[in-house]
Design a protein around this nucleic acid. Structure first.
Lengths: 218, 218
DNA sequence: CAAGCTATCAAGAGATCAATTGAATGGCAA
DNA sequence: TTGCCATTCAATTGATCTCTTGATAGCTTG
């Protein structure tokens, strides 16, 4: 009983989950699913790959227990498999930033110049005070799937034309998918160009959601 | 600026870390390093693979920022790269258990019949009361590299011959490398065969160490 | 039940990875 | 210096992964 054979089987089983995180495409899918459940075709379109390939990657994620799927008529909607999967993905992402300079560099290249940020705790306090306007600049479907309480949805595409909706005398905080999502950066730049005092939330909806849950748990 | 090209580069960089967790061999190395820093040749011997192969995997882990290395005379000692790497590995391991029935099955096959366990909080309380004997059944080097305060080292190999050191009138708690390490299970079975009232700690030194640190941080 | 759409399957080409082997490097000690 | 040992490098083979293409299956609607 219990020899190297069994131990290897154990590590192999764990590596099944590790493999799920070994492909950039799959990570992009996870990142999207962290915002909202989506159909295969949507994921394919948004992530810019073929439907067949997307389906295969989703199946790999499913085999690793990281996503769940549900038929909806003629299509299939995939979701992140619970809080566990979300926090694992966020942990991997954060660890990769702090351990690999490469990631930080890639992030800078993608996000452009840094803009002023505010962290979750500070935002919570300011929301209690009621002296900020909180704007969710993600696509409307993602807002609908879940958002920070008190936020108003103004997708980044509509920001310029709806600028008038935002008061000029209060600070505006924009948030989006997370620390490596360009929407909030963009939004802040455009808001400032529009004469608003604006900052971005340091991270995004998934992180907010997760800390809310763990706060409730504690 | 900032297009699909840059976004892909970002996910690719994160996937570098993901790849580190995609091989069972590398996971075994991480698991060993979570106990104590070790030289390449030791790791090769303990994990039962060739030195060259071990070296290659360690370099992969190094490239992913999960381990650090230090020359020591003619040899090289590898260590886990900080708390971040440890907690990521533990998170992956735990998530794989809760999301994949396969992992749990493999664990049962390897560990054999379940034995009574005690969790960290309960152990902490019992240690304060002083009514348990805590035994670290890992190899002595791992004990030396770090152990639970108040534990005594009795490597599993020496357990039978040193049974007399353990009082028969107090409960004995054995711990080892973690929830999937067979040592504590074995130890409890042998202790019971030796007439002791014994349980195992639910997890092991790495988990204890990590919660100690986060407690201190909070 | 036929058409149309979505998702999955199946097969294959090309790339990447894993492990082995044998040679090279770097530090240590005689 | 020379020899020795631990580690790394380099090259190779076979296995695995990724993406594409074209076919298939499942559901819905006319």
């Amino acid at each position: 009983m219990r020899g190297r054979r069994e131990k290897e089987a154990l590590f192999e089983a764990i590596a099944l989950v590790g493999k799920a995180f070994a492909s950039p495409r799959r990570l992009e899918l996870l990142d999207l699913l962290a915002q909202a459940p989506r159909k295969v075709e949507e994921l394919a379109r948004v992530s810019g790959q073929s439907t067949a390939n997307t389906s295969q990657h989703l199946q790999a994620l499913h085999a690793a227990g990281m996503v769940t799927r549900a038929r909806e008529g003629t299509s299939v909607r995939y979701s992140l498999a619970g809080e566990e999967a979300l926090s694992l993905w966020l942990a991997l992402r954060d660890a990769s930033v702090s351990q690999l300079a490469e990631v930080e560099r890639a992030a800078r290249d993608y996000l452009g110049d840094e803009v002023d940020a505010i962290n979750r705790d500070e935002l919570r306090a300011r929301l209690r005070e009621g002296d900020v306007v909180l704007v969710d600049v993600r696509p409307a479907e993602e807002f609908d799937a879940g958002h920070i309480e008190g936020a108003r949805s103004i997708p980044i595409d509509e920001l310029e034309e709806r600028l008038a909706e935002l008061p000029a005398d209060r600070e505006v905080v924009a948030y989006c998918r997370g620390p490596f999502c360009a929407y909030a950066h963009d939004a802040v730049r455009r808001l400032r160009a529009g004469g608003r005092h604006a900052r971005r939330l340091e991270d995004g909806w998934p992180e907010w959601q997760l800390t809310q849950k763990s706060h409730r748990a504690v």
